[in-house]
Every structure is written in structure tokens, then in C-alpha cells.
Nucleic acid binder design. Structure first.
Lengths: 252, 252
DNA sequence: CGGAACATTGAGAGGGATCAATGGACGTGG
DNA sequence: CCACGTCCATTGATCCCTCTCAATGTTCCG
């Protein structure tokens, strides 16, 4: 097995936009095509014609941009942010391979958040009008689109729970467990990872200041729960993290 | 005009479940049928066959319940809550006439949050498989379903922004403005309202304790921004509330 | 090698939580 | 109609968690 800290999907295809196919994508079990028949998959291949590369630090779309497509993360790592009227912003999520970006844009035909690559990334472009057309033909695809949107709503509820009722320690523990679990589902290690985001971005996502994030990491390390060295994190005692997450509950 | 503190939709139909029609519903401009042709509306009428009454304090659905339908609020007022493993819960939203409940259930075929009526309410039942079938025929309905889900995602982003980066005062100001704006869109006053939820429920939604909510209300009242008397709230200086919401930004 | 970006750590302050008591509003039943 | 109990809201006093301000350390890259 490859180095668990390196992405599974290696091949960096050259052109800025590349013809691709869902049907032989190694993310097809995580991404849009889940549960489609061979025939349906072929039709989907036809729709998802191109990829786009996004360099680290570059923007996939910005709040206010006209909405035309969803994006499936093929490789790399993104953050999404919403911005207040005066320019402060809040990270609303981190997205990795197989996850879908851009669902926020449907309702107003323009994006309401921005997506920025935290490492060199590649996305599959899903023109939304074509996706709607195709999902009127294939109920499996239609239902899957609905499930993806519902999944995002459920995820958001979880973030609200985290922001609304957990303390800093609990938030950080929940964050680490969630991240490593998603990475593990993509073939990475279940205990170690390289964080692609800064302490400030973590803090923004978790509703706390970067110093508090750093201090919490250090405290967990002192307690032997994790090992931290800058962006590298190793989870030594996952059950301790889980206990911290659930401890909020037992306090009542 | 009727008393602005009383619901617009008066008629309380008798049977527990009643045959209804979108085509002559006074909420059709706010609810599912937005933008449908007469023909499409008739088909939708066929789908939305029944209503359900939910008494104050009763549950429309609970986390874990099998998912079968979406619900359009016809009258009354709901809260949705998510619950942690050990039983503490967090309010994730308040829903009023014309708003759709149950989108969280699609992804796992079971609900992940609970919906409780905060006053006697009535909902239209939208069997989801039939809704999918119909929206494969009518692209306008299909797109509207997508817009409703996207709208929920955008709303959730706003709540994350609120919970993650606003202080108590700002949260309460944003909450009051949002509530009165939605009520005004339904024909109620733009300056006064009766809160249907307790201070504790507001606090849960806003990520703060009930005492802090109460204190913040009192402070706003002392400053002449609002008038509060228990559940009754009158906004005296909406621009002051807006300034408080945006002040978070100007502090950086 | 030097600078920029990011991370860590410390000291002090403050906002909101907690604990606790009082006060209203509402509904039920006598 | 009033008395009572329950639920909810208000207000005060105190504490603590997290923020703020500040300095130092580390990594990476030109």
C-alpha cells in the first residue's frame, strides 16, 4: 500500500481541462455515480466531460459568481467560506476527493460561498442543467442527487450542533475524528494525517481562535491522546477523543 | 387587515387529515408550487392529497423515524432539533408557513432531526417518491425541489456564520431581524411579533444560554432598540439592530 | 541565508456560563 | 372567580473558558 499520507489518486493529467470518465474513476464508489447501472454510467460519462485543475490557494468559485455547475473533487483538498458584508469570513467546510461542491449556488443562480483549494486539486465539472436533464431520465441518478444534497444538510446540522453546544476541547476532538474517518474511507491511515489547513482555518471552522486550537492540540498531546507536529497529527487514543466528544452529553 | 400578530391562514379544517389543493392555497407563492403552470399545479394537487394536524408540543417526526415524506408547513410554527448521543439537543431551525420540513431524511431514509410544533400546526404531506416521480416529468418542479434544498444549505451556512463568528448581541439582533423579516413576508407586521419559542429554545438555536438571551433582550430594551414583554417583541429601531449585526465586521 | 507565513506559548482581560433567587403568566380545578 | 401550581422569564453575583495582546519558535522557500 502507498504511503498513507499521500493521496490515493496520483496521476496528474496534463491539460488544464481533461476528458474523463466516471465509469473507470477510482472514486466512483464515493462520488456521484454510486449505484448507477453500466448504461447510466455511460450517459453520465457523456455529461461529465471535463476536469479543471485548481492550484493551491486558487479559487474554484467565489461568492457571487454565476452558478452553472457542481464540482466533484477528484483530488486535492478545498475549504468553503462565507463572508460577512464587511469582509470577515467563516470556513463552512473542508472537502476532499469524492465530495461535491457548489450546491449552495442552485437557489439563487449564483454562489453564496467561495471554494478555495488548500492543495493542488482537480475537480470534475458537472454542468447542472445537464445533470437535471439526465436525472429526469434516470431515477437512480435523480435520487442520488437528492441524497447528496440531503447529506450536506445533515452535515450542516452536525456543524451547528458542534458550534452551538460543544466546548473547544470537544470541537477539536470531533473535528479530528471526523477528518481522519473521512480520510480513512479514502484509503488513508486511520490514525495519522497531514492537515491541509492552517490553525486559523480550523479555528474559523470550529468557531474559535487559532491560539485556542493550538493550545487544545498541545493539551491533547500532553495528555497522550494525540501526537502533533505542525501539520502532522497522529491519533494515539481514538477512544479518548470519542470520550471527549461525548462528554458534553454526560455533563447534563 | 387582520391583527398582524395573528396568522394569515385562519381556517382550521376539521378532520385530522384533509384533502387539499395547492392550486388555491394562499401560500402557493411561498411554498412548493412556485413557478408552476396550471397544468403542473393540478398534477401537484394530485400528489399532495392530505394534511396533518400537529398539536402544540407534538412531534411531526423524530430522529430515527423512517423517511417517507416531506412536509410543507401550512400553518403554525415548528422547531427542528438534533440530539447528541447522550440526549442533549440543539435547535437547528424554526419553520413557519410555506417552509419545507424533512429534507434531512432523504440521505439515510430516516430522519436525523426531530420536528416539534411550537403552536398548533397543520402540514401538507408530500410523499417523497411521488414527488420524485412527478419532478422527473416537470422540470420546473424538479428545479424547484433543487432550489428548496439549496436554500436550506445556504440558510445553514448563515447559521454557521452566526454561531461561529458572532457575539451574543449580534446573534440576537440577527435572529430578531430574520424572524420579523420572514413574518413580514407572510403578511404580518414588520415591527412586532409574538415569539413562539422559549428563551431556552432561542438560546439553543443561537448557541447561548437562556439567561444570556434574556439579558440581551433587556439590554436592547434599555437602549430603546426594542420593546420586550415576555413573548411579545416590538422592534423600535431596526437600523440599530442591523448596525449591531454588521458591527462584527467593522471590528476587524 | 533571510524573510514570510505559520505555530506555539504566556499573561491578562472579558464575555458568557453557572448558580441562585424572585417575579409573572397561564391553565386547571376547586 | 380565585387559588394554586407549573412553566417561563428576569436579574444578580461569581467564576471560568476563551479571547486578546504579545513574544518566541519553526518551517519553508526564494
Amino acid at each position: 500500500m502507498a504511503n498513507p499520507l499521500q493521496p490515493v489518486a496520483g496521476a496528474a493529467l496534463d491539460p488544464a481541462t481533461v476528458r474523463v470518465a466516471c465509469s473507470n474513476c477510482n472514486l466512483r464508489e464515493l462520488c456521484l455515480p454510486v449505484g448507477l447501472s453500466a448504461d447510466e454510467m455511460q450517459r453520465l460519462d457523456h455529461l461529465i466531460a471535463t476536469r479543471r485543475r485548481v492550484r493551491r490557494g486558487a479559487t474554484l468559485f467565489s461568492a457571487g459568481d454565476p452558478f452553472t455547475s457542481l464540482y466533484a473533487v477528484r483530488s486535492g483538498f478545498f475549504k468553503t467560506t462565507v463572508t460577512t458584508a464587511d469582509g470577515r469570513d467563516q470556513v463552512t467546510g473542508f472537502q476532499m476527493a469524492g465530495e461535491i461542491l457548489g450546491l449552495d449556488g442552485i437557489v439563487q443562480d449564483k454562489h453564496s460561498c467561495s471554494a478555495v483549494a488548500l492543495e493542488d486539486a482537480e475537480v470534475c465539472i458537472l454542468p447542472f442543467d445537464q445533470l437535471e436533464t439526465l436525472s429526469r431520465e434516470f431515477s437512480a441518478l435523480q435520487h442520488h442527487v437528492h441524497r447528496i444534497m440531503s447529506r450536506e444538510i445533515v452535515r450542516d446540522q452536525g456543524v451547528m450542533l458542534l458550534l452551538g453546544s460543544m466546548r473547544a476541547e470537544e470541537r477539536v476532538a470531533a473535528f479530528l475524528l471526523n477528518l481522519v474517518q473521512r480520510l480513512h474511507a479514502r484509503g488513508f491511515s486511520r490514525s495519522e494525517m497531514i492537515l491541509r489547513m492552517t490553525r486559523e482555518e480550523i479555528g474559523s471552522y470550529l468557531g474559535m481562535k487559532l491560539e485556542t486550537v493550538s493550545r487544545t492540540f498541545s493539551r491533547f498531546q500532553d495528555e497522550g491522546i494525540i501526537e502533533v507536529k505542525q501539520r502532522y497529527v497522529r491519533i494515539l487514543a481514538p477512544q479518548a477523543l470519542e470520550a471527549i466528544v461525548n462528554q458534553a452529553d454526560t455533563q447534563l
